[in-house]
Nucleic acid binder design. Structure first.
Lengths: 210, 210
DNA sequence: TCCCTGGTCTGACGATCGTCATATTATCGC
DNA sequence: GCGATAATATGACGATCGTCAGACCAGGGA
């Protein structure tokens, strides 16, 4: 022991390859977990999606549960960062509309790659590791909402986030496409009461054009 | 063929035993699916919970997916019936409050045996059989809500159901108990705007006493 | 009484799950 | 180039999954 410390380079690391591979696994799991549920997909499918074979998984994560927790944290923190930037951005008056209407965008909801809260809500709720991992991001999203909401901001943020999450869940539950879209537009209308109705329709149209 | 029709009794059936056993499987699956997710529990565990062994399962249901669909339909139709009775009942003016506050009861949410929409929402959304099976009940719940809501009833029902579902999902997601309860009370407050704030607290107190 | 029929249990099948020990490849310092 | 080392691939393990064929057991009609 007591090595002479071989320079600053700790060892021969070919590149930041390891971190990149880890990230690939993370994003692959993000897609597949949201599409099939955590229990609905195996680690081998995740690794295949990442372009690897299943054996190497445990060089990057100690268990599937740990992967689920990290995926949850990563996905929700990304959402929280986005909302935070919008809410702190230049045009505050359109910030709320942009947050709400992008969250409730029918095209996005249909991809099954929407917010973790709506696609893996019950899965995460059952896993204490995952639940703890998203605590900070959840509070971050509430803070961002509070920043751009009128009235009793805290109460309003809690209720508005509930409405958005529920609307997306119900939209994906409805077998009738018309009903699915009705949940989204009704939710948007109830969160954005100050806007005139035509405003909503304009913004939804913009959304669809993009 | 062309039997002489042996009286009214079609055959030797010891009792309505079969239907009763089937119902036992159904309720056991209702509990376990909501607690662990459809993919989180096996048919053997369901049969054990029903007091049977796993082999006999396929005498009652053709597959696990079929069981999931029937459980979804059964659970949601029961909820729809309850709401329907309340909404058509005698004291219309408290009907909305009773529906909303019982749905958002913290004690009930904590049991993980609450509404199918909140515990198995994403699971059901991924299974076309289950999704189709709940279509009618979902519309029934919206109808019941429309019956007791003020204003633009249809829009209001869509948004209110979204808020309730989202609040329960988020409440179970929050690791902090205070935050968990805050989602529920904020949602109740936003759906019951006509009531004075103290009214809500009274009713929540009543709820807790019961 | 005895068989017959319906309902349940036993035992087993192939497939897939999470996990890991080991072999193989690629990369860097010398 | 060469040896060391990190990153990935291989292959296999026990467990559990959904599924089903066949044995067991009870009750009612002859």
């Amino acid at each position: 022991m007591a090595e002479p410390i071989p320079l600053q380079a700790p060892a021969a690391q070919p590149a930041g390859k390891r971190a990149e591979t880890r990230q690939r696994i993370l994003t692959a799991a993000g897609h597949l977990f949201r599409e099939h549920g955590v229990d609905g997909i195996g680690v081998d499918a995740v690794m295949k999606e990442a372009g690897l074979t299943h054996g190497g998984f445990y060089l990057h994560f100690p268990s599937k549960e740990a992967l689920a927790a990290e995926v949850s944290q990563s996905l929700l923190e990304k959402a929280a960062r986005t909302w935070d930037e919008i809410s702190c951005g230049p045009d505050r008056n359109t910030a709320l509309r942009r947050i709400v209407l992008s969250y409730l965008d029918p095209a996005h909801v249909a991809t099954a790659q929407s917010c973790l809260l709506t696609t893996l809500g019950s899965d995460v709720a059952r896993r204490s590791k995952s639940r703890e991992a998203i605590g900070g991001a959840l509070r971050g999203m509430l803070d961002a909402l509070s920043r751009v909401l009128p009235g009793r901001k805290r109460q309003n943020a809690l209720a508005s986030l509930s409405t958005m999450v529920g609307a997306v869940v119900l939209s994906r539950l409805a077998d009738d496409p018309a009903l699915a879209e009705a949940f989204l537009t009704a939710a948007a209308a109830s969160i954005l009461p100050a806007q005139r109705a035509c405003d909503r329709k304009e913004l939804l149209a913009e959304q669809e054009d993009a």
